[in-house]
């Protein structure tokens, strides 16, 4: 799904160089690392918000260097760490925005689009939120709604920037399990950045560990050893 090929990532200087790394679909990858090690930069580079310094990243076998900015939306969706504050936006309409890459120039929703939105709502079990305004949602509900929007976008790859940061333990667990279910059942490649190492280890997902010391990214498969992660990321 995602293939790093001698990719150099950073702002002006290389923060991380990734020689050769494949991320498969059907998995949730937990991205961990020190603050400033480049978690956000990595996610931003994959979504073309930041320039790739050197090398290449292949998304669905397409080089990021040749992929047009506006075509990105067909390949990957992104869930940010903050939720936009908007008045008078209903949950259904918000999730519907995920259909944007698939609708015609006037943005009208077809029967199919509505079906996909409903599927996303169903998958996240948020039918009760459907007609609510996004401004009325709790932090946990907002995260679910954002993920539903990403699902409605129907991309193979979903990136999430610290989706569990503002949630309580129960909600963190819920979001993580849901994402795992989605990855497996819908065969998606998910990367989420997190601070929460303990919880992530329990989820039995592969880890992507950013090492500031080595300037690289290494993948650890479950069962992941907590000590090893800490050593690598914070040592």
């Amino acid at each position: 799904m995602i293939h790093f090929d001698k990719a150099h990532i950073g702002y002006s200087e290389t923060l991380i160089s990734i020689d050769d790394l494949h991320l498969k679909s059907g998995e949730v990858h937990i991205l961990v690392g020190k603050n400033g090690a480049g978690k956000s930069t990595l996610l931003k580079t994959i979504t073309k918000q930041e320039k790739l310094l050197k090398g290449d990243i292949l998304i669905n076998n397409i080089s990021l260097n040749t992929l047009h900015e506006n075509a990105i939306a067909h390949h990957l969706s992104f869930v940010g760490s903050t939720f936009p504050s908007i008045d008078f936006m209903r949950v259904f309409d918000f999730i519907g925005l995920g259909r944007t890459p698939h609708t015609n120039a006037l943005g009208r929703h077809s029967e199919l689009d509505r079906q996909k939105i409903n599927d996303a709502i169903e998958a996240l079990e948020i039918e009760h939120l459907r007609e609510k305004f996004t401004s009325e949602l709790s932090d946990g509900e907002r995260q679910m709604v954002s993920i539903a929007k990403a699902l409605a976008q129907e991309t193979k790859i979903i990136l999430l920037d610290e989706p569990t940061a503002f949630l309580d333990y129960a909600n963190k667990l819920k979001v993580l399990n849901l994402l795992k279910k989605i990855a497996v059942e819908m065969d998606k490649c998910i990367i989420l950045s997190s601070h929460d190492i303990e919880l992530s280890i329990e989820s039995e997902c592969p880890f992507l560990v950013l090492s500031k010391k080595n300037n690289d990214l290494s993948m650890l498969f479950p069962p992941v050893d907590k000590q090893e992660v800490i050593e690598l990321a914070f040592g």
Binding site: T47, Q49, E69, N70, A71, I72, A73, H74, S77, F78, G80, P84, I86, M89, F94, L97, G98, T100, P101, T103, A105, L106, G107, Q153
Partner: peptide
């Protein structure tokens, strides 16, 4: 109308949705 609808959630997200 289509880009306007998306712009409501911010320029970054609009861009990531292909605007």
């Amino acid at each position: 109308v289509k880009p306007l609808n998306v712009l409501v959630i911010g320029e970054r997200d609009a861009k990531l949705l292909g605007t």
